[in-house]
Design a protein around this nucleic acid. Structure first.
Lengths: 177, 177
DNA sequence: GAGATTATGTCAGTACTATTGACGTAATTT
DNA sequence: AAATTACGTCAATAGTACTGACATAATCTC
């Protein structure tokens, strides 16, 4: 078991380096940072029997109250079937409510309840604390730089989803009624 | 179905804001950035019938040739059982080989083969390209700042895992220490 | 050398998140 | 009337993860 199989390749004993122009340092840091970034809310979610999927839904329903199921699918980049169970659980536990769309009654607009808003905040709190701590070491200018870097990491054609920056989710309000 | 259940809470129609001191902007950017960051290699992995777990194993075996199974488990923060299938597949497909540990013959040192090295590079290439593009917009100083920010996002007690790699990595990035 | 510990491997069962495909219903559009 | 859209649901499957239990071989300890 330990030894190589008949036609196995020879072991390479030297570590991969940046020689090929690959930025392994940041690739790896990104992995570690995200791993720990998500571990905070994971702890809380476990108490509710929820997972990361619930968190994402809850987050966006709070960020964009009134978004439709289709819009949510588009933001999360998952399928309807994947969303179904998660959304149903959030509705059953009274974290999210559905309202019939005003102009198109086929649509279901999703809104957080007070309970859902509170949970979203509780989940975001440790993440925000971690971010603040990470930014604190450096100057205030870094905040803007980090924001810009992260935004530049997103596929250009998908940046529209991020109404970010102003923290005012104005772009999505369905005009006047 | 559309209407609220008997005792359902009222919908909150206002978007959650940073009023509570929560940094939703970066929280959300981090989610989007990581989603797209991992989507590049996912495409390639699909051709091999591999998933993200294979990528992570392959990455660290290439970064730290000769690490043991236990060390790998510690870095990935997963269980032995989760690693088993993934590692076996990588060995069966001749991307990774195991060698008996020289000082402790119970240990299995993991090394990439030429094939495994090539795949690791192929997977890292689009990610590195994305990072370079994201950094290019700004000054050269940003690279260090982004590195520092991401490192600060990692749990302090786990930062030792990173330094191993980045020490070998950077020709000049960690000037001050 | 006997016994405990360690490193690894494996089996069984389960959970969560995700997928594709198919079908149904109600509402809107053409 | 027919097609399309928005949503819901069912069935089947996959990938990744978990806990717990058990086996084996090697090393360490007494």
């Amino acid at each position: 078991m330990t030894d190589k199989s008949p036609a196995a390749g020879k072991p390479i004993r030297t570590a991969i380096t940046s020689e090929d122009g690959i930025d392994f340092a940041i690739i790896e840091l990104f992995f570690f940072a995200y791993r720990d970034f998500t571990s905070d809310p994971d702890q809380i979610l476990a108490d509710y029997g929820f997972g990361r999927a619930h968190h994402r839904v809850l987050h966006f329903v709070n960020r964009r109250p009134g978004l439709t199921v289709a819009e949510l699918l588009d933001v999360l980049k998952i399928t309807k079937q994947s969303l179904a169970r998660v959304l149903k659980q959030l509705i059953d536990t009274d974290h999210v409510v559905q309202l019939q769309g005003p102009r198109d009654r086929r649509q279901r607009e999703l809104y957080p309840t007070a309970k859902g808003r509170a949970l979203a905040l509780a989940l975001a709190r440790p993440q925000s604390r971690r971010i603040r701590a990470a930014l604190e070491d450096s100057g205030a200018a870094e905040r803007t730089l980090v924001e810009r870097f992260l935004e530049a990491m997103v596929n250009p054609e998908l940046r529209a989803q991020i109404d970010v920056g102003s923290a005012k989710m104005s772009g999505k309000s369905h005009g006047e009624h």
